[in-house]
């Protein structure tokens, strides 16, 4: 069973719509007893990191996520929350991927909004995705480049826009809003 983890501020409707278009069945839940039965979890997020962490804490989901052993994909804020720490509200995060999330230096328009190209190394999530494919981004904070990085993007500086550590995957862009190739990313995740 595929589950969308809905902590109350994610862009659940968009992710659900893509799954519908792929004829995939799923549940939307924040209930640990339901999520425990999932064999894959999608974790979309928008909004503020500290709000997301507080909600995960209230829902008693932090140790559950950290110990999840099946494929898990964090999207946008979902990916940032999987890191160690973010400068957004100076928030301690899930520490699944040992990476720091920083605020973009104010050298250009912030947030980084729109379609930007990505470069990836060979990995299952980007299977059949051409190098340089544009994805849709909206964010003011970024993950630094790191050994778990699976794809990078450049805006103001080069940053990590996809990570993987074991079963945990994260993407900074919005695959659910990135047309055909975004849909392909979701499909690739479903095939893991």
């Amino acid at each position: 069973m595929l589950a969308i983890l809905d902590y109350g501020a994610g862009n659940v409707a968009s992710v659900a719509n893509v799954l519908h278009s792929l004829n995939t069945e799923f549940v939307v839940s924040s209930d640990i007893t339901i999520l425990q039965q999932a064999d894959k979890i999608l974790f979309p997020g928008v909004g503020h990191a500290s709000f997301a962490m507080n909600r995960l804490h209230e829902l008693n989901l932090i140790p559950f996520i950290q110990n999840f052993e099946k494929p898990f994909l964090g999207i946008c804020l979902g990916m940032q929350v999987m890191c160690t720490h973010t400068e957004e509200g100076n928030t301690e995060c899930l520490n699944i991927i040992p990476v720091k999330v920083k605020k973009f230096p104010p050298e250009d328009i912030i947030p980084h909004t729109g379609w930007n190209e990505t470069l990836h190394n060979e990995n299952m999530l980007f299977k059949d995705i051409p190098q340089g494919t544009d994805f849709y981004f909206v964010h003011s904070y970024y993950a630094e480049k790191n050994p778990y990085c699976r794809a990078t993007c450049t805006y103001i500086l080069e940053f990590c826009c996809a990570v993987q550590k074991e079963n945990f995957w994260g993407v900074q862009f919005h695959p659910e809003k990135s047309a055909e190739y975004g849909k392909k990313i979701i499909q690739n995740f479903l095939s893991l």
Binding site: A13, S14, N17, V18, H20, S21, Y136, V138, H174, E176, K177, S178, A179, E180, G182, K183
Partner: peptide
């Protein structure tokens, strides 16, 4: 609309 398009 949201059901058929995958752009913002």
């Amino acid at each position: 609309v949201a059901q058929v398009i995958q752009i913002p």
